[in-house]
């Protein structure tokens, strides 16, 4: 990986690497509220079958995951756990924020106990809108993330700067 870290890897190698990363996403399910059931439907139900996209939905721990789906309302009491979960994941790691609550607080925009968006705690790669989004919407979010992974330069992850990637 020294080549990747130096940022001098040839384009074809990067693309190959990205393609293989794109089709072997281990996704950790961080189900919090209603969206968790739709996420369950997307990941478990035979009707939606997420594995055909190259996504493996049941890692044993966040330490084995590439992607976490934050699905549902993040409360102020839960927020430290979400942050800790993100810190436990190995790089490169991606986050999908699923549903209005995780995006911005949703119907609880004026609540005293709800965090108004998970992006206040951890960086988010793809936002899936909806309350809750249909399972198809989550699959679309995953496809978008895969496009993003395909187009990114892995070396950016080691440069330390903010990640700005066109998907």
């Amino acid at each position: 990986m020294g080549l990747v870290e130096s940022g001098k890897s040839p384009k074809s190698l990067t693309t190959l690497l990205n393609m293989s990363r794109k089709y072997s996403l281990w996704v950790y399910q961080w189900g919090l509220a209603c969206c968790a059931i739709e996420m369950g439907a997307a990941f478990v139900a035979p009707r939606y079958d997420v594995m055909r996209l190259g996504v493996i939905p049941l890692p044993a721990s966040p330490r084995q995951a590439d992607l976490v789906v934050i699905s549902g309302t993040v409360t102020d009491k839960m927020a430290p756990s979400v942050k800790r979960l993100y810190e436990q994941m190995p790089d490169p790691k991606y986050v999908i924020s699923m549903g209005s609550c995780a995006n911005c607080g949703g119907p609880y925009w004026d609540s005293y106990s709800v965090t108004k968006g998970v992006d206040q705690i951890i960086p988010v790669d793809v936002y899936v809108p909806g309350c809750p989004p249909r399972p198809e919407a989550l699959l679309e979010g995953i496809v978008l993330l895969q496009e993003k992974i395909l187009n990114e330069d892995p070396a950016d992850r080691w440069k330390g700067g903010p990640l700005v990637i066109d998907g």
């Binding site: 919090l32 509220a33 549902g72 309302t73 409360t75 009491k77 839960m78 756990s81 609880y108 609540s111 005293y112 106990s113 709800v114």
Partner: peptide, 8 residues
């Protein structure tokens, strides 16, 4: 311990 989903 409840309250991780308390939305008020």
């Amino acid at each position: 311990i409840a309250g991780y989903m308390h939305r008020g």
